[in-house]
Each structure stands twice: as structure tokens, then as C-alpha cells.
Design a protein around this nucleic acid. Sequence first.
DNA 1: GAAAACGTGAGAATCTTTCGCATTGTTTTG
DNA 2: CAAAACAATGCGAAAGATTCTCACGTTTTC
Lengths: 138, 138
Amino acid sequence: MENQQIKRAGLKVTAPRVKILGILEKSRKRHLSAEDVYKQLLSQDEEVGLATVYRVLTQFESAGLVCRRNFEGGQSVFELNSGDHHDHLVCVKCGKVVEFVDTLIEERQSQIAADKGFRIQDHSLVIYGVCPGCQSQD
Amino acid sequence: MENQQIKRAGLKVTAPRVKILGILEKSRKRHLSAEDVYKQLLSQDEEVGLATVYRVLTQFESAGLVCRRNFEGGQSVFELNSGDHHDHLVCVKCGKVVEFVDTLIEERQSQIAADKGFRIQDHSLVIYGVCPGCQSQD
DNA sequence: GAAAACGTGAGAATCTTTCGCATTGTTTTG
DNA sequence: CAAAACAATGCGAAAGATTCTCACGTTTTC
Ligand SMILES: [Mn+2]
Ligand SMILES: [Mn+2]
Ligand SMILES: [Zn+2]
Ligand SMILES: [Zn+2]
């Protein structure tokens, strides 16, 4: 039960938090913006304010429960933190997201940071392109 | 002379465009936000509106004269398009930016896009960390 | 040189995200 | 289990970045 996760994160178990975590769990395939989450709450007749959605997502991020992604185009999107890091391929036509991990790239990145004397903290790799589905309808 | 570049881009040679291109050329070391460019114009007593700065930067981007970078933290930053692609290391303390190119990473990216059936269009790789200078003052 | 086309500054508008605060809910204490 | 202690919420206002609108000035066209 997800109440445990919220408690473990040092947060009180409240209706908005449980609902939002539930929505993120149900859409593991998608990356949702705060607005997306808010719309889903509305469609389930939940009385949660947009400000609360932003607040809770930020708290979940700090607690390591979710990851915030800054793809192109205004809004941040959020996904459940699966524990293992991964990078993204994003379709510029339909927005489809495909995840991948490449250990070779990860290693090179560490190497580069080391070469330049940086203490690496994080990185963001996004490949933009046209997905198979969108290529056919050109 | 940069008037040629503006003309080649299919844009008319106007005072704001010349000034803005000049500012970008003078700060090849830095990545400037629209606001940064605007402040520099003010400090040279140029009468250019912020809206024009945004317009011109966007036009330069479309024309391939400059590249827009979306690092973390609100504002986009711009740099002259040097012709050859490169990626970035960004210091999370002081904002310092170091550029790099790694052909191995580039190749792996193409490979991954191909594997997933994507027609690659672009990519963004940013490594966040603490630069040598900022490590000493911890 | 008049008409048409373009570029500009100023401020309004938009979009995403955060804040302030009165109210409500959760947990702790006795 | 009620009260105290404290945290979380909803709402609207505010903020920050960027874009839009539009009246006006400049350039180009003929
Ligand atoms: Mn993902
Ligand atoms: Mn650069
Ligand atoms: Zn697609
Ligand atoms: Zn630094």
C-alpha cells in the first residue's frame, strides 16, 4: 500500500498525496505534467487544487519518490522513481517517450566530468526524433 | 562583418539585430539569457525593447545563427552557433559552463535511436556537477 | 514619392509555477 | 477519545519567462 511510501518519506498521509501517488502508479507508461495530474483528479471528482498538485509533486521529488523531467516545451513532467536511472527518446511529433539505459554512455559521462575536474551530480540526456508511428504519416 | 550573416539569414540588417549579434560574438565564452542580452544593450544606452530581444534571438535561432539551450532553471540561454555540435557540463553552484564533444557518445546515441526505430533529429546532453573552483569553497 | 511591407517599443496578455493566508485535517498527548 | 499542536489544503494573488497586439516609424517597391 502506498501509504507506507508516503510515511517513509516523512510526509503525512493525506487524501491529495494518496490520490496523486495512485495516479502516477497507474500511468507508469506515461510522463505526466502537473496539469495532467490535476485533470485526472478533476475527472475523478476529487477536490484538489492545482497548487497542491505542484506542492505534492515537489515534495515527492525531494523525497525521491518521483523524478521531474525537463523536456522541451514549457512544462515539467513527472514519473515514478523506478530506482534505476534511465534516459529518454522523445518523439517531436506525438510526444511519445521511450526509455533507455546505455552503460557505455554513462561511463563516458563520468569520464568526461572527471577529466574536467567536475564532481558529477546528475545528468540529463534526451534524444529528440520522430517515432516509427509518426514516420509513416509523413 | 556580421551584416553579411544577417543578410545571408534572409533578415534585414537593422540596428537591434546588428547589436544583438555583436553582443553574442563578444561573449563567446558565456551563454547569455535574453535578459542578459537586454541588460547589455541597456548598459550601452541602446534603445531596444526586451520583446525585440526575444524576437531577434528566435529569428537567429530559426536561421541557424544561434543555438538555444534549455538548462535547468527557468530561462533559456543562447550562444552563437559555432557550426559544430557540442554538449555541456554545468556547475550547479556558480553556473559555469564547460563544453565538450565525445564521438563515442554521439555514435551510441545514433545507434540507440536506430534500434528504437526513431529518425533522430536532435539531442540534448547536460551533465550537472560542481566545478573545480566551487569544490574548494565547500 | 505614395503605397505596401516590414520591424519596432511598450505594455498587455499568456503560461507555468509559487506564495500567502485563512481554514481544515492529521497526529500526538493525556 | 478530546484537546492541543502542528501540518496540509484550497483559493486567489503574484511571480517570472516569454509571446502577442498594435500604433507608429522605416524601408522597399513601382
Ligand atoms: Mn522515464
Ligand atoms: Mn555551448
Ligand atoms: Zn510519434
Ligand atoms: Zn562552479
